[in-house]
Design a protein around this nucleic acid. Structure first.
Lengths: 249, 249
DNA sequence: CATGGTGGCGACGAATGCGTTAAGAACCTT
DNA sequence: AAGGTTCTTAACGCATTCGTCGCCACCATG
């Protein structure tokens, strides 16, 4: 959890509500970050350079989106915006103007740490704002997605869903986990809508085996798909049903 | 919950009702956690650092939310609050001050374990993604299972069952225990279905001695099976021509 | 060695999970 | 307000998995 070696990463918290900011600050400090905190957009823009910026979009002075855009203009820091539950539009537009990621209130502290780490990992790997999984390339800045070089245009939900899976290729996510990440933090209700979106995604990506179904569990992104096979076949890959033949190899 | 040979995760239970805490404690211990238990908020704040904190909000001394906030201030542990069904407001505010998740009373033990695991997975603290027992390797991230390097594809129940046994190799689990963990917290019906699944597992794993039967008690995973011995028996190793049990369902 | 209790496993119907299509609801744009 | 997207829900058919039953093999007593 603490990354040892090297100077501590500088983290800027932009949050006006002290009740939220205070525990956040100490928690992040504990996790090994050098934390600075400001309460307004103006102060954020005046603050020292940071490696990671945690930006609440509901600020008292300047509207969050402008702050985000301006911060991006001045620095290449990782910007993670914090949004209220319902505000999908705001979230998307923040991402459009340069945020790298978002967390939805109320968010768990552990989740926040995980998101920070995930983004750090990505940028330190030199992949910048790109998420690559075999044939699939996701530009998280522009929200552009290409499969085998061909660009695909996705809706907001489709994109979120895909990014969620792409953040850890090969890992199996339950429906609940996906819904919590790409829909709402504590989704409660039917999960059928997810299937419909998965179907839409598969159709658009045009490589059916990219998103695999793990029967009775959930979905995962196929990490081993390095080239376009003429696999006209439909449906799923791995964990096939009663596939005893796996025993001989 | 063996995280690649790392030390056991430390788990703190904050609960004043002994009738609830005691079984919880033993159950969690059995699941591989190093459990400490305290009965008051004050004691919780004084306790040693933990990786996971299970916090009942209805404490006798300090109000739960303050304890939660203070715990978060001091540690980046995963905090899971326990609330009564009705108390949604309290639950939400606990999440606001830093809790990572919640479970609602009355909760099933299996659900609790699942919640804990889910959060560990999320934080990648629990990246003990590999469960190794001799020939057997379980990747809990991708749910891939290999025996002596051969990949085996399992159904959801088979996988759960295997993981349950693999979490403490060598330990003998009663049928009831296994059913409660891999099926549902309160299973009262016949236990015959378990036998059928064990049979399926043995067939798929193709190493019959991996899952051992303890007559009159239950099952256990054989922890001492370090290599594939081609001892006399024609059942192991390569899928022989006459061995239709491993080759066909 | 007979006997009752226990475990192994094939088979089959029931239950569940999944993919798809289509229709309504909510949203954004014009 | 109309026309377009996008999201959600319902419905249906198919595929897979699960739980039960039945039969036989095995074990532990006396």
């Amino acid at each position: 959890m603490d990354r040892d070696g090297g100077p501590p990463l500088r983290l800027l918290v932009v949050e006006d509500d002290t009740a939220i900011a205070a525990p956040l600050e100490t928690g992040l400090r504990r996790a090994g970050y050098a934390v600075e905190r400001v309460a307004t957009g103006a102060a954020a823009l005046a603050a020292d350079a940071a490696d990671v910026i945690l930006l609440d979009l509901g600020l008292p002075d300047i509207d969050g989106q402008s702050v985000c855009a301006e911060l991006r203009r001045r620095s290449s820091a990782i910007i993670i915006v914090v949004t209220a539950r319902s505000d999908e539009a705001e979230r998307v537009s923040a991402l459009d103007v340069g945020a790298d990621d978002y967390v939805v209130k109320p968010f768990g502290f552990a989740e926040l740490l995980a998101r920070i780490r995930a983004n750090l990992r990505r940028t330190q790997l030199g992949t910048g704002s790109h998420l690559k999984v075999g044939l699939l390339v996701i530009d998280t800045r522009s929200r552009e997605v290409t499969v085998a070089g061909r660009e695909v245009s996705l809706t907001a939900k489709e994109y979120d869903l895909l990014v969620c899976l792409a953040e850890d290729p090969g890992r199996v996510y339950s429906r609940q986990q996906i819904l919590e990440r790409a829909w709402d933090a504590h989704w409660y209700g039917p999960t059928k809508t997810l299937d419909v979106h998965v179907a839409a995604l598969r159709r658009k990506l045009a490589v059916p085996s990219l998103i695999e179904t793990v029967y009775g569990v959930g979905f995962r992104l196929n990490p081993d798909l390095r080239e376009l096979k003429a696999d006209g076949a439909h449906v799923t890959g791995r964990t096939g049903p009663g596939d005893e033949r796996a025993a001989e190899l």
